[in-house]
Amino acid sequence: MLRPTYPIKTRRLALRPYAADDLDALFAIESRADVCKYLYWEPRTRAEVAADLERRMATTTLENEGDALRLAVTLLDTGELIGGVMLAWRSVEHSGGEIGFVLHPDHHGRGYAGEAAVQLLRLGFEDLGLHRVFARLDAANRPSGRLLERLGMRFEGRFRENEFVKGAWTDEAVYAMLAHEWRDLTEG
């Protein structure tokens, strides 16, 4: 089980559970076509974001296989919500987890996604004791792929036209890291 102490702070960010007053900021992110380009959904309506926000507010611990932490990423100095991250417990038997991240485009290129993702890897490996953490993404999303590589995650493969998303077949890229690779990065 994983029950983090919130907020999880980095040098510039705070990761925390979502709150009801995050609706405007979350809608400003998820209603954008450029944000949703590589996601499973089209730009969301305010009502859709509000419904999803309710689900996000309830995901603050990992207790069982299939659970996911979905946390708001905020700027430490201002509290501004700039995106979200996810750590999912995918398999108890195989000790596996998955990470994901979405940031408002105004905050791309500043290292925020990497800073937040490092905390997800730390939670997965050090606090939950996972053996393997992976990330899946649309293979056309090269900026996110490069970020995962900078984090030390290994490109494991490209699955050709394995998902039908928004009316088209898409390729999926998978990146992963093992617990001993995480230790080598953080202890070395």
Rank of each mutant, 00 (worst) to 15 (best):
M1W: 01
M1Y: 02
M1L: 10
M1C: 02
L2M: 03
L2R: 05
R3Q: 10
Y6L: 11
Y6C: 07
Y6K: 05
K9W: 00
K9Q: 13
K9Y: 01
T10P: 07
T10Q: 10
R11Q: 14
L13G: 06
A14V: 15
L15Y: 08
R16E: 12
R16N: 11
P17Q: 09
A19L: 10
A20W: 02
D21A: 12
D21E: 15
L23G: 09
D24R: 12
A25W: 03
A28K: 08
E30R: 12
V35E: 05
K37I: 06
Y38T: 11
L39F: 05
L39M: 15
Y40I: 02
Y40C: 08
W41T: 13
E42Q: 15
R46Y: 04
R46T: 08
V49D: 10
A50M: 08
A50S: 14
A51S: 13
R56P: 00
T59V: 01
T60G: 10
T61Y: 02
N64R: 15
N64D: 09
E65Y: 05
E65C: 10
G66V: 08
A68D: 09
L69T: 10
L69F: 06
R70P: 00
L71G: 09
L71S: 13
A72L: 05
G79C: 07
G83R: 13
G84A: 14
G84R: 14
M86T: 15
L87P: 13
S91D: 09
V92A: 15
H94M: 12
G97D: 07
G100P: 06
V102T: 15
L103S: 12
H107L: 07
H108N: 11
G109W: 03
R110K: 15
G111A: 11
G111D: 11
A113E: 09
G114E: 09
G114P: 09
G114R: 09
V118C: 05
V118T: 11
V118G: 02
L121S: 03
L123N: 13
L123M: 14
D127V: 03
A135Q: 06
A135H: 02
L137Q: 15
D138T: 03
A139Q: 08
A140E: 15
N141V: 00
R142A: 14
P143V: 08
S144E: 07
R146T: 13
L147V: 01
L148C: 05
L151Q: 03
G152W: 00
G152V: 01
R154Q: 07
F155A: 12
E156N: 05
G157V: 01
R158I: 01
F159A: 12
E161S: 13
E161L: 02
E163Q: 07
V165W: 03
G167H: 08
D171K: 03
E172N: 13
E172K: 06
V174G: 09
V174W: 06
Y175D: 12
M177A: 11
L178E: 04
L178R: 07
H180V: 02
E181R: 04
R183P: 00
R183L: 06
T186P: 07
G188H: 08
